[in-house]
Design a protein around this nucleic acid. Structure first.
Lengths: 154, 154
DNA sequence: CGATCTATGGGATAGCATGGGAAAATATGG
DNA sequence: CCATATTTTCCCATGCTATCCCATAGATCG
């Protein structure tokens, strides 16, 4: 599972160290590496292991091949995704267009979200995190959320 | 799996470098090479490895041999498909009629879609990609799409 | 306090994409 | 059946980019 948040440096060759925990996460995969694509509408990158891409592929395969929604999603996800392999020291190299799409600028943040993770520009992420914190109290008082997180399971 | 999008040059001899990742994808096939045919109705080429053609063949075999729909589909897919082998530097040579059917004009784009990929004229692809991005927000708000991509799989 | 792992920087190297010439195969006409 | 024209295949050369490799420094852990 991809957890926690960590900041790393994007160097002049567009390389960035992947969090060691993420490398361990995909260490068992056949081609170990991270699969990454720019989010279709938001300004960050989404990533995961082979399992994530395979899951998208299976989900899209439920729609007929000629369904416009399937074709559009394939284009935005499978067509945009790239497998990024680790170098000997555990870094990945980000394609230039990914860097532009996500507005990355030196300091980048990896944010774990369970089955997947996100790569943000540090500045944009700080802003988003502040907003999330500012709204946290109201969120936790929302009856639907209370119910969702509520009692212990079983 | 065929992923990602990359642009290559169609030279004066109708040769174009196949993406290195696609070559790796079919490296294990008995006759390694790409199987390509013009889409029956749209202006691009569809391609894949041996697995793709074998899959079409199996699917068509579900219909009786004399079924007119089977005969028509065989003509449009199996009859149109060609195996394109790589030269020593990893290029394939596109037949002239494929180039005309897809309106290829110097710059061509390979688009990965999982089990298959497509070959587009760069100009036409840029337009299609822009449209897909423009409609992305609405797409991701579509309840059917939310449901499709939504929950984690078991 | 040494051993190991992680993060980062930079030079060297190998692979990829592309162009063009030479040789081989194929087609066309007599 | 041969001669010529055309197409296709093979081979080599080049610039560029990504990858490999080494070095350093800090952090972590017994």
């Amino acid at each position: 599972m991809f957890l926690s948040t960590s900041e790393h440096t994007l160097d002049s060759k567009n390389r960035v160290s992947a969090p060691a925990a993420y490398r361990a996460e995909v260490a068992g995969d056949p081609h170990q590496g991270l699969y990454v694509f720019p989010h279709p509408t938001e300004g960050f990158l989404e990533g995961g292991g082979e399992a994530l891409i395979a899951s998208y592929k299976r989900k899209l395969a439920r729609l007929p091949v000629f369904d416009p929604r399937r074709r559009q999603l394939e284009l935005l996800i499978l067509g945009a995704a790239r497998r990024l392999d680790f170098d000997a020291t555990g870094r990945i190299t980000l394609p230039k267009d990914f860097i532009e799409r996500a507005g990355l600028n030196g300091r980048v943040v990896f944010v774990g979200r369970g089955e997947r993770f996100e790569i943000w520009d540090a500045g944009a992420f700080d802003t988003a995190l502040e907003e999330a914190r500012a709204g946290a109290r109201a969120l936790l008082e929302d009856p639907a959320v209370l119910d969702l997180l509520g009692g212990d399971e079983e």
